[in-house]
Design a protein around this nucleic acid. Structure first.
Lengths: 259, 259
DNA sequence: CAGTGGTCTAGACCACAAC
DNA sequence: TTGTGGTCTAGACCACTGG
């Protein structure tokens, strides 16, 4: 919780920065406003995950219209400096987490190893009738079923990742009765003796659709990273099929591979 | 070059689609306009890399203000459906190219293998004094120099990638005198007997800075993918250090890795 | 319930691209 | 030179968040 004093301090610094750039540059309003806001944000006055002043307050102190304020904020959002929670405001981004898609070592481990606090929340889990393509890929016999698990994952209590996991239900009996708010790859490897030995993945940036955006408290149409991942066991059978949606400012993808 | 007839056909279809969604849904203006534009774009009336009607024309035919038109276009841009050339207009995106960062097999090969036409253009090449960090990484002795090569790469004559390559100048004598509008990894492997056997990379989405945006004919602040890549030879020495900026709608990143 | 972000309008001017 | 996209303003209303 920010005190009123800190708020006033922040606003004063913004006003000062705006004035400085107005005096020393010939840049257009948007560029000056962005420089001022950016300077104050990197000065450390705003804590990570802390909310910025309201758009209307920024409009006043930066001396530009609200539309321009929103363009400035969108620009900083694209850079990853700030992020937005839908109808809640704009917040200062924490540092990115390095995420190695290839390693079966999962989210919980990565995040903890980098000194941050991971959390996984199961949104829903159910037995579903897979589409023919999915059934074929997961090695599900005709008429067989799949488990679908949707989870939301947090870093320092900030939601950053939505994933849907599909597995062959026959191969992992009782899976849905387990605690899934943890590492699934560990469960499959330890409890079912099915370790993942190979991963194929594809990723590209795209807009988050409405349902995913909602689950991340983001604005529909915000940029996001979409990841499709297929995990194989030692025999080359598909263990797990994942569809993931990442918050674009939360991660840095890491790769380390022999040729 | 599009004929006037095709233009009129396109506008007629847009008007029809806009009317359809206005009649059949209760959605707000932006959603209806996006649905209409999206429907027409996926109908195939517009060719890949072809320019959409001007924002003011869309404003008229979609029945919303220009600001809303631009929000719709920005939304479709975030999805990767269309892309923008700065001050030139909005264009229909071609399909993404699968790009495997890990494989030393380069851009020219990947693109050609997928039935598209790659091109590489060297923007500049020079001998530079490397920073201490870069020198250390590239194994450059005290006072030694590095080669910097900046290239722009095209798919079907659309610029999609800007890269800066840094190598140890002492290790690759005469490199800058060669034709660099081709595969650099092949040159290093074949002509200098230094094949890359390991690649470490990191990637994250961020806004393109002004210089890179300009080289891609994009609007400064547009989203892009930043990639830092380090290539090693069999002895574990760094061969090549790359900084790359990708067009976010042009690629799909592919990963295939043993655990 | 007050204030916020999200949306939308109707203008305007400029620098630049393309013809 | 014409028209374009890029920028900017000054409003307005709505749905929702949070106290």
């Amino acid at each position: 919780m920010r005190t009123k004093d800190l708020d006033q301090d922040l606003m004063a610094r913004l006003a000062q920065a705006a004035e400085h750039f107005a005096d020393t540059t010939q840049d257009p309003p948007q560029v000056r406003a962005r420089a001022a806001l950016s300077a104050v944000l990197s000065s450390g006055v705003v804590a990570q995950q802390e909310r910025l002043p309201s758009e209307r307050d920024l409009q006043g102190v930066l001396g530009v219209s609200r539309g321009t304020v929103r363009e400035v904020l969108a620009h900083l959002e694209a850079e990853g400096v700030i992020y937005r929670l839908d109808r809640r405001g704009w917040f200062l981004s924490p540092p990115r987490i390095d995420y190695d898609l290839a390693k079966p070592k999962g989210f919980m481990t990565f995040v903890a190893d980098q000194g941050r606090v991971p959390r996984t929340e199961t949104l829903d889990k159910m037995l579903i009738q897979p589409s023919p393509e999915i059934a074929d890929m997961l090695g599900i016999a005709a008429g067989g079923m799949a488990y679908s698990i949707r989870r939301r994952r947090y870093i320092d209590e900030r939601p950053v990742l939505i994933e849907q996991i599909l597995v062959n239900a026959a191969r992992f009996p009782g899976l849905l009765e387990r605690d899934l708010d943890t590492s699934l790859s560990t469960i499959l490897a330890k409890d079912y003796q099915v370790p993942t030995t190979r991963t194929k993945a594809e990723m590209y940036p795209t807009a988050l659709d409405e349902s995913v955006a909602q689950m991340l408290y983001m604005t529909p149409g915000s940029p996001g990273l979409f990841v499709r991942r297929v995990c194989y066991d030692a025999k080359g059978q598909v263990v797990e099929y994942d569809l993931e949606h990442w918050h674009p400012s939360a991660f840095r993808l890491i790769l380390d591979s022999d040729a």
